[in-house]
């Protein structure tokens, strides 16, 4: 099938590529544009590791048609750090040992980032709700919840 041109902003830079009409955003980011921040877990919308921000909203990239992202702002964990300075959420994840194998981490960070952008002082219940679409097999969630709550209170946490 003929490929379609696609343009969007990825972590603040304009990107252009050609995609199959049926390709999903995850495949386009990883294989097309070499952004390996979002991970491929289940490919069917149940694990959350592929979560990216589309115009600030958390979205499962494996279930998002790439062509639906024309002209949009896509943000992934690859764009979270500011040069050598980690995003406060990344720092908090390290301080709280919120990753073991780290496979769920990009999805967790992105879900948390979307939460804090809208709700800078979330309650524990709101944090739990925000990450409830993300599976973690290692940590037992507690360190992740603690990290997000700590980041909410850290200076600069709302930096998008």
């Amino acid at each position: 099938m003929a490929k379609l041109p696609l343009q969007f902003r990825l972590n603040g830079s304009d990107r252009a590529t050609f995609v199959d009409p049926a390709s999903n955003l995850l495949d386009t980011l990883r294989r097309g544009l070499g952004d390996f921040g979002p991970k491929y877990g289940c490919g069917q919308g149940t694990c959350g590791v592929c979560t990216v921000l589309v115009d600030g909203e958390p979205q499962l990239a494996c279930l998002t048609l790439a062509v639906s992202c024309e002209g949009r702002q896509i943000e992934t964990t690859s764009g979270m750090a500011d040069g050598p300075n980690l995003h406060p959420l990344q720092d908090a994840f390290m301080d709280h040992f919120a990753a073991q194998c780290g496979f769920c981490t990009p999805g967790m960070l992105t879900a948390a980032r979307a939460l804090l952008a809208k709700n800078p002082q979330p309650s524990r219940e709101e944090v739990v709700e925000a990450i409830s679409g993300n599976i973690c097999r290692c940590t037992g969630y507690e360190p992740i919840i603690a990290a997000i709550l700590a980041a909410a209170n850290a200076p600069g946490a709302r930096r998008a």
Partner: peptide, 13 residues
């Protein structure tokens, strides 16, 4: 696999 069967989520700890 665990995409399809039940596991405790962050609200069940």
């Amino acid at each position: 696999d665990f995409n399809e069967y039940l596991m405790p989520g962050p609200g069940d700890i």
